[in-house]
Design a protein around this nucleic acid. Structure first.
Lengths: 201, 201
DNA sequence: CGTCCTAGGTGTACGCCGTACACCATCCTA
DNA sequence: TAGGATGGTGTACGGCGTACACCTAGGACG
């Protein structure tokens, strides 16, 4: 995890990890069957650190809080979301996390069926991350605005949006979007919809 | 694209593509600066094939239809979603696609601000795919149910859900979930929420 | 005390990957 | 007829995951 934190997911190779540990690459294979198992291990650790303590109150704030806790952990370890996405089978800690969220929904009055749909609907957002289609925080804020201007003829709708976003955000914190706001916006929209379905039964 | 279709994203290497073309690997670099540019190229092609023809009627069925069209294309080329996720900068065809969806929303009565949040909310689902946390279509249907039984003590909520899903689906098409249904369920929930916000302004 | 098992580190090697660099053949244009 | 573009070739480097055979220190047990 330390190596991934500082070198990113790409920088985490068996060879590099070995030299970091002052050891020859093949020595790692006495502790781990292969690289996949190593990745499963660090995923299990990072997800296992998410606090699953009991939460009181309605299902909605409870689920919201749990997901935002997970998100904080993902932000602490930026490689984690990519690592999780790359895996095909869930690790025990991921299962435990899912189990806890499902529990909050079930005790909150969701039917088994609706929980199932809810899990699919939340998708990776349940673990606190969402894959954006592209990185909207380019290095140069001015360049972004210039690019938006250049798009006005070919992609007018896109340019309109990009320009307004660039304008709005410039007053706050340079360019790019407020990821945390957008995440919570989407999360609340989903939770609203789920509550509507739950109470409609 | 043909190679990716048959060998997957992992199987698409410069060397393999070259031999497939009956040519030496370095020959590819006379047509493409590097592998990233090649990936951008095939993404642009696959996304460019999505029909962006004009759609009549309300924004909601229009956006729904466009996204489901995109999804069909993604299902036709299973490597595409992974390739798109791996990229940091959008290709022209992706921009054109986004522009078209934004246009449908804007002419449908969305403010620029709300469109921006909507795009973030839809995330990758706008292009017809959503990253599931894990692959829920294991090879052996019986094994899945057995695993669910084994989880009853450690992860009771998860087991409860898995067992009901396994039971429900067994009558239809073996195990696993109906991905298309779950996708449309989530999409409709999002579109419902967005419509509520739009008409509330 | 001597034996043997085991946990864990070592060295070498294979086959894959992306790609830098120098070279060459063809063909179209001036 | 000369010269530049276009595009294929050969070699090589540094990285990756990992198979296989080997060695060493320490503890268990007769």
């Amino acid at each position: 995890m330390a190596l991934a934190d500082e070198a990113g997911l790409d920088g985490l190779s068996m060879r590099r990890l070995a030299t970091e540990l002052g050891v020859v690459p093949m020595a790692l294979y006495k502790h781990v069957a292969n690289k996949d198992e190593l990745l499963d291990g660090i995923i299990d650790t990072v997800v296992g650190e998410i606090d699953l303590g009991p939460v009181e109150g309605d299902w909605r704030p409870a689920v919201r809080a749990r997901i935002l806790t997970a998100r904080a952990q993902m932000l602490r370890h930026p490689w984690a979301s990519g690592a999780i996405e790359s895996r095909r089978n869930p690790t025990p800690a991921v299962l435990a996390y899912m189990n806890s969220v499902i529990g909050l929904l079930r005790t909150g009055g969701f039917t088994v069926d609706l929980v199932h749909h809810a899990i699919h609907t939340l998708g990776s957002r349940i673990l606190g991350f969402s894959q954006e289609l592209f990185d909207d925080t380019p290095a140069d804020p001015g360049a972004q605005e210039a690019a938006a201007h250049a798009m006005k003829d070919t992609f007018p709708w896109l340019a309109e949006m990009a320009l307004q976003v660039a304008h709005d955000e410039k007053s706050i914190v340079g360019s790019g979007c407020d990821d945390q706001f957008e995440f919570e916006f989407a999360l609340d929209l989903l939770l609203d919809g789920l509550e509507r379905l739950r109470s409609a039964v």
